[in-house]
Design a protein around this nucleic acid. Sequence first.
DNA 1: TATTGTTATACTCTATAACTATA
DNA 2: TATAGTTATAGAGTATAACAATA
Lengths: 142, 142
Amino acid sequence: MARSGQSTELNGLLGYQLRRASAMVMADLAVRLETLDLTPGSASMLLVISAKPGITQSEIGRILSIKRANMVPMAANLQTRGLLSRKRVDGRSHGLKLTGEGEALVTRIRRQIKANEKEFASRLEAGQLGKLLAGLAAMWQQ
Amino acid sequence: MARSGQSTELNGLLGYQLRRASAMVMADLAVRLETLDLTPGSASMLLVISAKPGITQSEIGRILSIKRANMVPMAANLQTRGLLSRKRVDGRSHGLKLTGEGEALVTRIRRQIKANEKEFASRLEAGQLGKLLAGLAAMWQQ
DNA sequence: TATTGTTATACTCTATAACTATA
DNA sequence: TATAGTTATAGAGTATAACAATA
């Protein structure tokens, strides 16, 4: 088990703390999503389609910062499993929508994410989660 | 450039925010450390040896959560470059120390890390960095 | 000329299994 | 029996380059 690292200057560094916290939280989330045969990436893709039905895979890639070349096997996998459907919107792009099964899976995804949040938010003092989320958002957005 | 992602439930999620913020900060840090021919991993290794001279590579791996098999090429690379020296402490393990050149490089690493911190801490409201660091530490330690 | 989807490919990180030599 | 260092290897995730079809 990863010991706390005791005293090193690393513990005062933003990049180090971000990396360790992210790795820990994402590892827990990955285990939970594995039970649904999903990765954090494919789960986030389903959430985006659920919020924006008809979106193209290139657009999803731009939102999630996933290269469109890497969206291809992800989308193909989810479609093969009957979780999403494609409909041509013009000659080169498809609008993606969740199937009923896809929407049902999104419900289960949300449950796993909530369990993940509960696990780690409980390690913070009351009312600190919102401030943490705001700080993190400021860090990478704009 | 990664757009902010507008309105998706993702923006309210701890795991998502951690992942995006960590990726952004680490990408910037990686670019800065590239100028020193280092990765965030090898740079953190040098910082640990600087703080704990005589430490073994397995022990560094435990502190940083890097598998000892993956420490091997990293340590070999740094030694080849004359940044660290090994001294047998018993028949199976070596104590690692930085050379003069290694210590000099650590000074430059700290400068790059400070520039990285400045870049991203400036996006927070005054006095929020400490709270953010404390929250992140609570997230993965213990 | 730019964009979508696609293929192929490479590179980095990380993980596991196995071996040796020591303890 | 457990540990340090090592080798080899496999799997993610991510990156680039190129192409066809379409806008």
